[in-house]
Amino acid sequence: MISIDLIQKTAEILMDKAAIEIPDDYLTGLKAASAVEDGDLSSFVLKAMLENYEVAKQDRRAMCGDTGTPRWYIKMGNETQVEGGPIALEAALRRATANATNGVPLRPNRVHPLWRTDHDNNVGIGAPEIEYGYEPGGEWIDLITVHKGGLFGTDYRMLFPSDGIQGIKRFYLDSLISFGKRGLACQPAIIGIGLGGCKDTCMVLGKRAACLRTVGDRNSDPRIAELELELKELGNSIGMGAMGFVGKSMVIDAHIEVGYCHTGGMQMSVHAFCLSSRRAVARVFPDGRVEYRTDPDWFTDYQRRETVEWELPAVAAE
């Protein structure tokens, strides 16, 4: 049984880490981009961002004043038991979100869409989102918080098989260029692309591709992995850099996730996870151990399974 108090305490620490500490994989990617950027203004912007990450950690203040819309991805093993059950778990995550909003502090971004009511704590109807995934074996729980920016860089389009890869590239470029102008997408970004599923799942896949995979990670399907690299290169060849200035850093990495879709369609979504790619992860065990990391490790073979049955490994070593 995993202690509910430990879950809430860990979740509060994660909220703080996500807002303040740039994940190492993104930092390494941005340093590489900065090393080759030769646009005067773009280059200045990347250097300022690298300095900003250091200042955030030194001062323990949020990297960016817009701390996004905090959400939770929760993954559990098949044997996981949480003290108080799922209702207690959700209450703990909502409390952690509210406490950290006041504690760090984060910007209380979440308001009612019509009445603009602001609880000043990032909690409200449907906020924070809490999504779930499961893995065979294991008694742990993974708490993953992502604070993605909320306004620009995301789009969806219904493509068809006849649009093909050429159509995918067109919509990809359209999204990057239109939101990249004036830097609205806060690039260079991790670009997540969802292909297939239904409209809602296509959006979910693309968002998770952006937020739950690390820079350098490749899709397990080698042909998709190749397309990821091709799209990364394509995005960096536009001639646009940070803030929409002349430059060559648009995409720190491109990630594609697919889902089976209607036979007549090829749904596509594009998502940009910004210069403050805020994510933090912890695995909590029943014996009270907590392991912090920045790789959500969400897309396991099990998450991408294709067939009816899933063969459990002969020995579930934990």
């Binding site: 203004l41 389009r157 219904m158 493509l159 068809f160 006849s162 649009d163 093909g164 050429q166 159509g167 590239k169 067109r170 919509f171 470029l173 260029i177 102008k181 004036r182 394509l234 060849s237 536009i238 001639g239 646009m240 929409g244 200035f245 002349v246």
Partner: peptide
Amino acid sequence: FERENERISQNLERIYEGTRPATL
């Protein structure tokens, strides 16, 4: 930003080569 957009726009025709507008 308009100055920068103008400079970048000169490259866009080339970057769009080999793509096609959406069917719908």
